[in-house]
């Protein structure tokens, strides 16, 4: 088994941390995993992305050209990665920051109003957890509970008070994605 996830957006949207939550969960459930960020000069105020590879054996490349799952938190990421999602793959779009529909019809596309949902959960910075929940509904590389357990286990003590809101955001994203998937079928 090997699965790859690419998460992309603006710096500050929590792209790198969302990937780390998945990486921690993969490690804690006994898998091999790599997490690699874009660290170029563009991340200073520009776009950021990270790739997470989860596997059962020693991982070769930490990067893939055509990931089976992409989370796009802004329009530049949507523009860049829509064409690169593996056929049959999943593209989770932050609808709050994107004003167009996907052109591909050979992939599953979910439109999640992430900014509004995060604010409804109490903080717009919960966007990344909303989108992580949505991703796991469409791309069950791990259960939502496994991701939650990892978040709780690896969040520093001083941030533990944020856990209930983060869990609520993940649940909201997951439920919204499930509903959309149900409608699409």
């Amino acid at each position: 088994m090997q699965k790859e996830i690419l998460i992309a957006g603006f710096g500050g949207q929590g792209v790198l941390f969302a990937g780390q939550v998945l990486a921690y969960a993969a490690m804690d459930t006994g898998h091999e995993v790599t997490w690699i960020p874009s660290y170029g000069p563009e991340m200073r105020g520009g776009t950021a992305n990270c790739t997470v590879v989860i596997a059962d054996e020693e991982i070769g490349s930490p990067l893939v050209q055509y990931p089976p799952a992409v989370v796009a938190l802004n329009l530049p990421s949507f523009d860049k990665y829509e064409a690169l999602v593996q056929p049959g793959g999943v593209l989770v779009v932050n609808q709050s920051m994107v004003d167009r529909k996907a052109q591909r019809d050979d992939i599953t596309v979910l439109y999640i109003p992430g900014n509004e949902m995060a604010e409804a959960c109490g903080n717009r910075r919960l966007l990344n957890m909303v989108m992580t929940g949505a991703l796991l509904a469409a791309f069950p590389v791990m259960s939502l509970d496994e991701a939650k357990t990892a978040l709780k286990a690896h969040l520093p003590a001083k941030h533990q008070k944020l856990i209930p809101n983060n869990f609520a955001a993940m649940d909201k994203g997951y439920e919204t994605a499930k509903e959309q998937l149900g409608r699409n079928q």
């Binding site: 990486a23 490690m27 091999e32 995993v33 790599t34 997490w35 690699i36 660290y39 930490p62």
Partner: peptide, 10 residues
């Protein structure tokens, strides 16, 4: 290289 330096692995 930059990739080994920046990536996270267990």
């Amino acid at each position: 290289d930059g990739s080994i330096g920046q990536m996270m692995e267990p």
